[in-house]
Amino acid sequence: MVKSETFPASRNRVEKVNAELVTLTYGTIVAQLCQDYENNYAQVNQQLDKMGYNIGVRLIEDYLAKTATARCNNFRETADMISKIGFKIFLNTTPTATNWSADGKSFSLILDENPLADFVELPDDGRAQDELWFSNILCGVLRGALEMVQMSIEAHFVSDTLRGNDSTEMRVTLLKYIDDELPPDDD
């Protein structure tokens, strides 16, 4: 009935790209942003988040098409999906979702390995260590992707091995579920 063998080639195989290429590309973007914003790291963080958001709103479609998963029943399931499937297919790592808050609305993602940050050493200017969140794009990606599946979230890094912390940890908080819009009124 339906020719299933005609699915686009990239649907069936896992796309592969050299990890170092990704790392270097991302690193160059961050370094360039730092240069463009004259080391105003707050602005760089914000810009990275914005870029991530734009990636997220598209990436979610790819995720849904690839995995054909159904809607998550609760936020815990969502966290599981993010770490075990989302990060797995796009970055090939599996962060741990942990440190749940009592109300089940916020959790931490601990990134044991961060492919974006290989080779990276933050600039030694005394400020970058305290102000720059090198992998901040990931926060934006999560925010964008979850917004497309009706979850308004807030995400930020709380620690980063690049800064000398013991782990790389991102805090994700569910703000609310966004309701589907009603069809426009006939008038």
Binding site: M1, F7, P8, R58, E61, A65
Partner: peptide, 21 residues
């Protein structure tokens, strides 16, 4: 026409490949 659920999934994947990306 028969069951088109797979076909629609396929169209969705076309949308992802050629539009969303």
């Amino acid at each position: 026409t028969g069951d088109l659920r797979e076909a629609l999934k396929y169209i969705y994947s076309l949308y992802v490949e050629y539009v969303a990306k």
